[in-house]
Design a protein around this nucleic acid. Structure first.
Lengths: 164, 164
DNA sequence: AGTTTATATTCAGTGTACTGAATGTTGTAA
DNA sequence: TTACAACATTCAGTACACTGAATATAAACT
């Protein structure tokens, strides 16, 4: 009998604990391959900004799966580093339009090889078949539990709320 | 052709990003099912302490997969809450022996049903077969990448360094 | 118009999680 | 025994990630 539902002696049979460990490892490899210029979350937001020029902070946070409070501080740091600019939108002075700078785009393109190595290293313990399985299962788990966290993903391109 | 190795347009094909989201969701469900008395990491450390009475902070951090700096602050908070006690070991005044209190053991046993619901909810999007697959793959990934993070797991029972 | 409601952002506070350094203790070697 | 290395713990600093509340703006409604 596989000990999936029975005794909970070993904490490492708990999916939550394993996920925490996997994330730690992922972050660690990230810094190894991508350097110290960006944190994983900063990278994710900048990468998402690249394909959604002029988006506002709330929408960018949403597609990045990050709570808006956190998203604001992340954007502030990216602005400090000169990787994006924030400008108040005249037609809706609540929103700030975000634009990636040249330095930001340069950095992203410099980081492409690292991001590929990161992915390969993280999945290296699995065979190619297992890699596909794992990604499919993880995607399914995230997608269907999506609404659980404070920062549920707005799927795909989330109707950029007519910034213009 | 499955887009596993090709273009990296969609960030949600990146394992690291998915792992971060999965962890967010896991934490969120944790609070939902386990209440606010303990954080996930506090729970993990207390649970590990239960089966390793008298262990020192460094060893407990190691088996919990937590860096010792972080482990120290977590233990301090658990002591404040009256869930464990820390006493300097006379024979080695560097180390502090940790002991779970009655209140700590009570709390852990109260949380057992919640921890089972947590596990079920987290894995609910997957069929039973998929759940087994997923746990196996995640375990493999964590185990073989173990040394990557600052807090590599000492496997199983890590030779409690003769506390006594 | 004036009031409510919704929205975007920010702020205060707590808790991981890490790095790098400091402190104190123990054990070993010159 | 004195110097040095190893070790356990702590501390300072940075960055997520969340909650709950505050602020400012915009839209809707009476």
């Amino acid at each position: 009998m596989p000990d999936t539902e029975s005794k909970l002696i070993n904490l490492y049979e708990h999916p939550g604990h394993l996920l925490r460990r996997a994330q730690q490892i992922s972050v660690s490899i990230f810094y190894d391959e991508m350097g110290e210029e960006l944190t994983p979350v900063q990278y994710a937001m900048l990468r998402n900004l690249e394909s959604h020029a002029g988006i506002d902070q709330v929408s960018l946070s949403a597609i990045s799966g990050i709570d808006t409070s956190t998203g604001a501080t992340v954007c502030a740091r990216l602005e400090e580093k000169g990787l994006l600019t924030r400008t108040v939108i005249p037609t809706n002075r609540r929103q700030r339009s975000l634009t990636i700078t040249g330095a930001g785009e340069q950095l992203l393109s410099d980081l492409i090889p690292g991001s590929q190595r990161l992915r390969r290293r993280l999945l290296a313990p699995l065979s190619s078949t297992e890699q596909l399985q794992f990604m499919a299962l993880l995607t399914k788990l995230v997608r269907e539990n999506n609404e659980q966290s404070r920062a549920p993903l707005t799927d795909g391109v989330p109707a950029p709320r007519e910034v213009s």
